[in-house]
């Protein structure tokens, strides 16, 4: 059996760099999905948790006065957008954990001794994986909200929901992967996730509008990235407001839907630019 002589036919040399890159990305993505399918508990919990939020939190304010929210909106309908964004945010914030475990167990070394066309395939596969899960979770929440009588996005609204979510997920995944490469271990990463998660939820418009908040918290909510994702999605659920209308009445001025998406996109680009050198330091 001939096993040792390196022949040029053995490698995909005639393939273009792009094809090699795609081969890496699909192999790494496949690994992540195999893990998910064989250990589905995270996905099941990831879908159940937001549904519980939606039901319990929705019920908490079910008997609020009719003009409780601006425009007489039902609380459950108001809350839906917040839960969708918060779920996607938490999921993406955890994106760094598998990479951190790969670092700790030495599996990452396996990837790093391989002649990867670009080591960003490790990042891309994580983004694909997290995005898919987020969209699945989002779809589950939207369906649940529909059956609870909280409505369904207007025409083109579903597209807007998914677009907004993806931009947010890219940003947070970049952040989390960056952290996974600079923090010393998973304990520290989990600590960061823990400290970031709930405060960002409460200091956003996920649960109540800015008008409810004391001035200082209103300021925080008006610069919180979650708010910029929540409001366009909320608009997608409303028949009267479009992307052109003012969605955030921030202390520093009014922002419409396009403004929200622009700010979110700039944040994503910024985070990828900041994270890049962190990744490159480890991933030459």
């Amino acid at each position: 059996m001939n096993t040792t002589f390196s022949t040029s036919s053995s490698l995909n040399k005639e393939e273009t760099p792009l094809n090699q890159f795609l081969q890496e990305v699909s192999a790494l993505t496949k690994r992540l999905f195999l893990q998910l399918i064989r250990r589905p508990s995270t996905l099941i919990a990831g879908v159940l948790q937001p549904l519980i939020w939606l039901v319990l939190f929705g019920a908490l304010f079910a008997n609020a006065p009719v003009d409780f929210l601006p425009g007489g909106m039902e609380y459950g309908r108001f809350l839906g957008a917040g839960i969708i964004v918060f779920t996607a945010f938490s999921g993406a914030l955890n994106a760094g954990l598998p990479v951190m475990f790969d670092r700790e167990f030495g599996f990452l070394n396996r990837l790093l001794v391989a002649p990867l066309r670009s080591r960003s395939s490790i990042v891309v596969s994580s983004v694909i994986y997290i995005s898919t899960i987020s969209l699945l979770q989002c779809f589950a929440i939207m369906s649940a909200a529909f059956f609870l009588g909280y409505g369904w996005p207007s025409e083109g609204g579903v597209f807007l929901v998914f677009l907004t979510l993806l931009i947010l997920v890219f940003a947070v995944t970049a952040l989390s992967l960056g952290l996974a490469f600079i923090l010393p271990g998973h304990i520290e990463l989990i600590a960061v996730i823990f400290v970031t998660n709930l405060p960002l939820l409460f200091a956003s418009t996920a649960l109540v509008p800015i008008s409810f908040m004391p001035a200082w918290l209103g300021w925080l909510a008006a610069i919180n990235p979650l708010t910029f994702a929540i409001e366009p999605i909320r608009a997608a659920y409303s028949s009267s407001t479009g992307l052109g209308s003012v969605l955030i009445q921030a202390p520093y001025g009014d922002i419409n839907g396009y403004g929200c998406l622009l700010i979110l996109s700039l944040l994503t680009i910024g985070l990828f630019l900041v994270t890049r050198p962190l990744l490159n330091r480890k991933l030459i």
Binding site: E24, A27, R31, Q35, G106, P115, R117
Partner: peptide
């Protein structure tokens, strides 16, 4: 490497396939 780091959830064959792809081997090869 000295420390045997393998992905416990994958089968041996799947791990070898992953390796082959990371080294850009053609599928049938």
């Amino acid at each position: 490497a000295q420390e045997v780091a393998i992905d416990k959830i994958l089968t041996g064959r799947e791990l070898l396939q992953l390796h082959g792809d990371l080294y850009h081997l053609r599928r049938n090869y």
